[in-house]
C-alpha cells in the first residue's frame, strides 16, 4: 500500500492505492498458460480413457480464476481526498463499490477514531455526514494522514 500526496494551484490531494505488481496482461498470460497446459494434458488423458482428469482440472482452473479475480477486484481500489479552498471531496473504490462524499472545506472536521487502538480510522465529518478513510493504509500511515489533513484543514481557506 502507498499513499501519495500532490499539491498544485492551492489544491491538495491524497491518494492511497494497494500495491499490485500483477498487470492485467500478465494475469491473463498466467491463466492462459496454465489453462492451455491443463487442457492439453486433460485432453490427452481423455483420449486415453482417463476422462476423470478433466473435471478435476476444470475445477482447479476455476479456483485459480476465482483467486486471481478476487485479486483483480482489489487491484483498482483506491481512497482519495481532494482539498481545495471550498471543498473537500472523499472518493473511495473498495471491492468494486464506489462512493463519493463532498464536504465544505471550512466546516469539515477530521478526527482519528479509536486512536489508541490497533485499527484507527481517519474520520471526516460535517453537517451530520461522515466519511471514514484509511482502509488501504497501515495504522502508522493513517496517523500520518490524520495529522497532515488536520494541519491543512486548520489553515484559513
Amino acid at each position: 500500500m502507498a499513499i501519495t500526496m500532490k499539491e498544485a494551484a492551492g489544491a491538495r490531494s491524497w491518494v492511497a492505492r494497494p500495491n499490485c505488481s500483477l498487470t492485467p496482461i500478465l494475469r491473463r498470460g498466467v491463466i492462459a498458460l496454465i489453462l492451455v497446459a491443463s487442457l492439453v494434458i486433460s485432453a490427452a488423458f481423455l483420449l486415453a480413457g482417463a476422462w476423470l482428469v478433466l473435471p478435476f482440472a476444470g475445477l482447479e482452473l476455476f479456483l485459480l480464476y476465482l483467486a486471481l479475480r478476487a485479486i483483480d477486484r482489489r487491484a483498482f481500489d483506491y481512497e482519495s481526498i481532494q482539498l481545495d479552498d471550498d471543498s473537500l471531496i472523499v472518493s473511495t473504490r473498495l471491492s468494486s463499490a464506489s462512493f463519493q462524499q463532498r464536504f465544505h472545506a471550512a466546516w469539515a472536521r477530521v478526527t482519528l477514531e479509536a486512536a489508541d487502538g490497533p485499527d484507527p480510522l481517519v474520520c471526516i465529518r460535517s453537517h451530520g455526514h461522515a466519511a471514514r478513510v484509511g482502509r488501504l493504509l497501515t495504522p502508522d500511515e493513517r496517523r500520518l494522514l490524520f495529522s497532515d489533513l488536520s494541519r491543512h484543514l486548520a489553515r484559513p481557506h
Binding site: 494434458i41 482417463a50 476423470l52 482428469v53 478435476f56 482447479e60
Partner: peptide, 20 residues
C-alpha cells in the same frame, strides 16, 4: 506451484478412477 496446479488433477483423476 505451477507444476502442482498442472499435475495434481491427473493424480486426483487417477485415484478417483481407482476408487470407482
Amino acid at each position: 506451484a505451477v507444476l502442482l496446479i498442472i499435475t495434481l488433477p491427473v493424480l486426483a483423476g487417477g485415484v478417483t478412477m481407482l476408487l470407482t
